[in-house]
Design a binder for these strands. Structure first.
Lengths: 157, 157
DNA sequence: GTTACTGCAAACGATTTGCAAGTGG
DNA sequence: CCACTTGCAAATCGTTTGCAGTAAC
């Protein structure tokens, strides 16, 4: 399957999942909700509410910020998106379907957030069952200095 | 050494560390800063700015919220405290000196935050050197359902 | 039709900022 | 004394809320 076709396939799939969720929750299927879902499943890695708002505007699809907040909450609820706060007041999101489990590397210097996939580590955390607590999901954020900033700092010395 | 003596020992130690940090940073040694450090190193696990403010008031030591924010920033900077955001807009802190490395278990239901120590897991993460990124610290937050809420839910069914 | 959803503007709450008065070095 | 700190109040900024109009079903 080509990359392009695969992407369309995922978009169809998540639309169906969202459909079912809305049905079960007795929520209405509005064009705004589907348009936001579609944008969330474009190829952007991490994005915030403001990005979604601006991007919708670019596409000449007028939505209020309230609706975006509302929809993102629904998407998080049905596990089609995840919400993160990487040490800032601002929340960022990422889509989860078709997106491998990963951790985040956050640069202390330039604040860039990178994804980091390590099956061994994921396995280890998953297997490490803790007593008296039933985990549903977790987030591992590793803070440090990225290679670009590391190079920049060396030059200064 | 008794538990009480040990606590006093830690308070003396962190005061010296803070002293050195303030000296190197050309910052002034004010009574407010020391009073806040002392409170941070009382036995509270996790606390927020408001808790510090109220607690200082109880001790009849008047400080403004601004000063508390300012001081906490300094403490984070010199690694005597860590700042967390467990999925809420509010930030919580914990002292780090004399506090073993640990992860956090956060209950989705009652939002309680528990500490979780697993030397094996800590070792594994530490050994898992990632290329082109120099980690300084990390935070692993595991979300799930705590035993109390799990029991409550069972009763409902 | 009924009821939920949307957009707007106002409210909110944690944090930051500007500034006059206070105090450490 | 000079510059950094403090306390206060106002400003900021992401997010939430209330409400009237609109659209699912």
């Amino acid at each position: 399957m080509t990359k392009e076709k695969e992407k369309i396939d995922i978009k169809t799939k998540v639309r169906t999942l969202f459909d079912n969720f809305l049905f079960l929750k007795h929520c209405r299927k509005t064009s705004e909700r589907y348009a936001i879902l579609d944008l969330v499943y474009s190829n952007k890695e991490h994005f915030d509410i403001e990005w979604l708002y601006k991007e919708m505007e670019k596409q000449s699809f007028r939505v209020s910020r309230s609706t975006i907040y509302n929809t993102m909450q629904l998407l998080v609820e049905c596990h089609l998106a995840q919400k993160h706060q990487f040490g800032k007041s601002i929340s960022v999101y990422e889509h989860t379907y078709g997106n491998d489990l990963h951790h985040h590397l956050i640069c202390n210097s330039c604040k860039k957030v990178m994804e980091y996939k390590d099956p061994g580590l994921i396995q280890f955390i998953a297997n490490n069952g803790m007593k008296r607590f039933t985990p549903t999901h977790y987030s591992l954020n590793i803070y440090g200095i990225c290679s670009a900033c590391s190079r920049k700092n060396k030059k200064k010395i």
